[in-house]
């Protein structure tokens, strides 16, 4: 298991290196002088030359890449052009807000989705199965930004159950502020996970080993929850791992609609002000998050499934 974990994280590092290098080169390939765009048309040539040297843009591309990676391994993502603060500091200040939002969203949607899916699979083609199917599909079809706006309108403005904007203070304050945005970006995942678990469960329930468990008189609850669900959950874990990437992008909507601090809001703000170091830094962290979450999903799978441990 430890061996598997080391190899899997080695692979994650490699993927991260390739992704970040490609991203670095793509940003450099964008036409237009970033210095001119950042400083505006009225900047003096001296100022432009200073910033060019500061960003190492006068160096050949391979040297820029080496400088970038040298700084990166020291935890240095560059300096914010406007405030002069370290990009690392700015990004890591915003990161926890986004992380909590994504974690809250995936936790509630996975718990509910797996429950609904497993129940529907245990009672296939009953009325409840059909009702949950209809609800699941409508959840999947609801875009996160529409749900965000509607829930803001209903639960924050009219009913005033939850706060409308900001991230809140203290544990309960933060939790209270998390409810609506997490609800908004998690809702479609409830439906998606429920459908996935149902299909996966029905397949596993038809397998011979489930018949064996029943033939030994093991009670149906244990057959469903341990013998079948533990296998049916495997593809769901993978999907959730990859889904973290999608949640990152829907978190952008939620952070804007609910005026929450976070990575998404940071990226949007820095793009409008062409603050390249911050854009680069946030995208890099998001990429790292995505790579780490898929690696974690594989690890959880290996922990749940001895066959996966042996295969690699």
């Amino acid at each position: 298991m430890l061996n598997f974990a080391i190899r899997r994280f080695g692979l994650a590092l490699l993927i991260l290196f390739v992704a970040v290098t490609v991203m670095f080169l793509m940003i450099r390939a964008v036409p237009g002088d970033p210095v001119q765009i950042m400083l505006g048309p009225r900047a003096t040539p001296e100022l432009q030359a200073r910033l060019t040297a500061e960003l190492a843009l006068d160096q050949p591309i391979w040297r820029q890449l080496v400088i970038f990676y040298t700084n990166l391994v020291q935890g240095d993502l560059g300096i914010d052009v406007f405030s002069g603060r370290s990009v690392t500091e700015i990004v890591f200040q915003q990161l926890p807000h986004t992380l909590w939002l994504i974690l809250a969203a995936i936790t509630w949607s996975a718990a509910l989705g797996i429950g609904i899916g497993a129940y529907a699979a245990a009672h296939p083609n009953t009325l409840i199965d059909r009702i949950t199917a209809a609800i699941s599909v409508s959840f999947v079809a609801a875009p996160a930004f529409v749900v965000a706006l509607l829930s803001l309108l209903i639960f924050a403005v009219h009913l005033q159950w939850f706060p409308a904007i900001g991230a809140g203070e203290g544990f309960w304050g933060r939790l209270n502020h998390l409810v609506l945005p997490a609800f908004a970006i998690g809702l479609s995942w409830v439906g998606y996970i429920a459908r996935l678990v149902r299909a996966s469960m029905l397949e596993v329930m038809g397998e011979n080993h489930v018949r064996t468990a029943r033939a030994f008189g093991i009670n149906e609850r244990r057959v469903v929850l341990v013998y079948a669900l533990r296998i049916a959950i495997l593809p769901v874990v993978t999907v959730i791992g990859v889904g973290m990437g999608f949640l990152l992008s829907s978190a952008v909507f939620a952070e804007i609609v609910f005026a929450r601090p976070g990575l998404g809001k940071l990226v949007i703000d820095s793009i409008t002000t062409r603050n390249y170091p911050i854009v680069m830094g946030s995208v890099l962290i998001s990429t790292a998050l995505f790579v780490i979450s898929t690696a974690l999903a594989d690890l959880i799978n290996a922990w749940l499934d001895p066959r996966a441990r042996a295969a690699k």
Partner: peptide, 23 residues
């Protein structure tokens, strides 16, 4: 359920599929 695996037991045909793969 009280009979299954107690008074009446069964050995199934395909040994490769008969056990739970993750337990």
């Amino acid at each position: 359920r009280d009979l299954r695996g107690a008074d009446i037991s069964i050995v199934f045909q395909d040994p490769m599929q008969t056990h739970n793969p993750v337990l």
